[in-house]
Design a protein around this nucleic acid. Structure first.
Length: 112
RNA sequence: UGAGACAGUCGGAUAAACGCAGCCCGCAAGGGGUGAGGAAAGUCCGGGCAUCGCAAGGCAGGGUGCCGGCUAACUACCGGUGAAGGCGACUUCAAGGAAAGUGCAACAGAAAUAAACCGCCCGCAAGGGUAAGGAUGGAAAGGCGAGGUAAGAGCUCACCGCUCGCUCGGCGACGAGGGAGGCACUGUAAACCCCACCCGAUGCAAGAGAAAACGACGGUAUGCGGUCGCCUGCCGCGUCGGAAAAUCGCUUGAGGCGCGCGGCAACGCGCGUCCUAGACAGAUGUUUAUCCUCGACAGAACUCGGCUUACAGACUGUCUCGCCCC
RNA sequence: GCACCAUUAGCUCAACUGGAUAGAGCGUCGGUCUACGGAACCGAAGGUUAGGGAUUCGAACUCCUUAUGGUGCG
């Protein structure tokens, strides 16, 4: 995922946690809020998920899943994807499925 | 063939497509190449590097403690000595001083650093001699045997231990031999302590750029401040905002690999060769194909040398003890 | 990343300078009382002193090491 799509400071994270709309689906939680600088996304995998190896792997898979679907996702919003602990046990297909579901529930996927 | 000791190595492979982080080439489009570990971990020691006030003196505090070597440095590495354990290969050990001084040693026991409860002997008794035997304890006055005696006793003797000289070997710790003393002198220093040696503090969130203009508050040296707990000494004259981000530090280093030489080894020297992550919400994933033994512990954040801890499985070398066969 | 602290019964804390049996409150369980319950009173159970090793005659206490939890520094 290219750098221009990333959230890069903790202020944005705090803003999304406080003011963003929250949608839960399965083992993935999504926060989103309107943005005036295109689309940006951050990923949060806490220490509850596991050790550093497990957390990094989970985060990479989330990134890859998000990246595959960037063209279908509405721009003009900031997103924050939070992983729940059991997500570390899922394979990539499940993670992708959870991500698409939560985005659909939020109404952020554009009809093809 | 079985059991074991020590040392060491590897840590799924190959290919393609789409992606990610630096780097290089290119005007651009794009292309090329590189990309986690043996422990990257814990942060237990020691350095490099950086800043602080000249890093100076003293006290306090801390660390280390057989000998020799190695190193940038270390108590942690290597080799040896001694002690303990193991049939053995081999392993483990913070291993100076208790005769500088102080403290502690519960309970038990007659008695705990000191001598008399029972006992034994002499004696009518009073009293005296004695440290063999007894129970306690972690520790009980060198051990054991013989002589000796009223009974006993290093009182005497042999052996062993201890202490102090001597000779020889070793750089040394120490070892071997032989001699003398005649047992005074319990343990504990990871108790205080003594002796010897070492240590300034803070850590890349260090710090550099970086210095200010200006504004607000305070207001005079017997004071205040200044990366040492205290003192001396030294230096400066206040505090806050301005000030936040980007950049640098940031990867060529006591570097890796190979060969040769010296050394038992740690390690050193020489030659050749390679450049091999450098992010800052923080880079390794997804899909497909083939193969196998179906893949453990685990993710760099300034850096290096050690230590410790985690680890599926596979492999190599040297050695020890047993059993069987020739 | 760096610097530190703590761990004792189910919970909150004691235990002196290392000395034998690790103690208190709350909670739990049993009993007395009551028609029943609460309160009160009586009694009991509950401990690998976080794990391992070392020093010592002897360790909750001293030393080393590991684990877990927590704190500070932008």
């Amino acid at each position: 995922m290219q750098k221009r799509y990333r959230l890069t400071n903790s202020r944005s994270f705090d803003y999304l946690y406080r003011k963003g709309t929250c949608v839960r689906e399965g083992l993935v939680v999504l926060y989103y809020a309107p943005s005036n600088r295109g689309m940006r996304v951050g990923f949060s995998v806490s220490k509850k998920v596991g050790k550093s190896v497990v957390r990094n792997k989970t985060k990479r898979r989330l990134k890859e899943a998000f990246r595959k679907h960037i063209p279908e996702i509405k721009h003009g919003f900031n997103y924050l994807v939070v992983a729940r602990p059991q997500l570390a046990d899922c394979d990539f297909c499940q993670i992708e499925e959870f991500l698409l579901k939560v985005l659909a529930k939020a109404g952020m996927t554009e009809a093809k």
